[in-house]
Simulated assay, not measured.
Amino acid sequence: MARRRSAAELLDAADSAGTAIQAKDREAEAKAELEQSRPSVLPLGKILDRTSDTRELSNQHVSDLAESIAVLGLLEPLVVDRRGRLLAGGHRKAAVFVLKEADPTAYAKQFSNDLVPVRVVDFDAEENPDLALQVEVTENEKRRDYTPGEVRALAERLRDSGYADVKGRPAKGEKALRPALEVIIGKSIRTVRRYLNTDIEESVTDVRLSGTEDSNTVATSLRRLQTELTRWQKAYAEPGTPELESITKNVTRLLKRVDTALKKEKG
């Protein structure tokens, strides 16, 4: 027979249940506030910090974000209350300040007239600190989920600005593409690699045409790959969706690397 719980135990259980219900209510309220928030712009100097900030900033994260914002702009607006107090986006705001000081030209290009994109949530964070905290948590958890095509398009823009596909630690003065994308889209390096669809490229460029490898077998595989890639180029020669165009650019780069590998094998 199950033991009957004491009055104290029943009170504790009721208190825990009530706390859980309140937490769910705050989460639902925060989601509703974010959904009703309105896009706007504010001068950087008018975006205020909350009296109690909840997240410690990472200097490296801020620096990486500043570099990407210089190229891509602020992809995710800051979130502020009706008085301009920051609710979410502490790293992004700090990165914008770093960019303004380090590269005024890039800053002026991305933030014309010193105006920064924000989303305004219509309540006062000082009057409702619990809701302010929940909005911060909710915004960070529900950040936009980029499609593979969007990630590849961002990668192209970063490459055009000097970011490189490098393995391991980048050399001094070199900017690595994948870690930058990891910071921008909030995904792991493995997910970024999958989105960029570079597994096949790495498998080809890692091939060694000497040593223990069978040179004839490798060359045959490369020629087959060359044929398939050429077939793709012909099939999608006409402009298509942004995602297809991005893939076609990757195919073109891979074809060049395959051609180079075949020439080395022949030489």
Rank of each mutant, 00 (worst) to 15 (best):
L65G: 06
I189N: 06
R257P: 02
D103V: 06
E156P: 02
D259V: 09
Y107A: 05
D122G: 03
T230K: 14
V80L: 06
M1S: 14
A106M: 00
A125V: 10
V80H: 06
S16L: 13
N216G: 12
I185F: 08
G90T: 01
L86G: 04
R50E: 13
L72T: 05
E33F: 10
R5F: 08
A13Q: 13
P179F: 09
G45F: 09
T212I: 12
Y107H: 10
Q134K: 09
K264M: 11
A108Q: 00
E136F: 11
L57T: 03
L262H: 06
E29A: 15
A155R: 01
V192F: 07
L181F: 10
K93A: 12
G90V: 04
P43Y: 13
Y163T: 02
D165S: 04
E238M: 07
P117D: 04
D259A: 12
S52W: 01
T227H: 12
E156T: 11
R26H: 08
L158F: 08
T198W: 07
N113L: 12
R85H: 11
V121D: 05
V137R: 05
E33G: 09
E265L: 14
P39W: 04
E35P: 00
E213N: 14
E202P: 03
S16Y: 04
R193T: 15
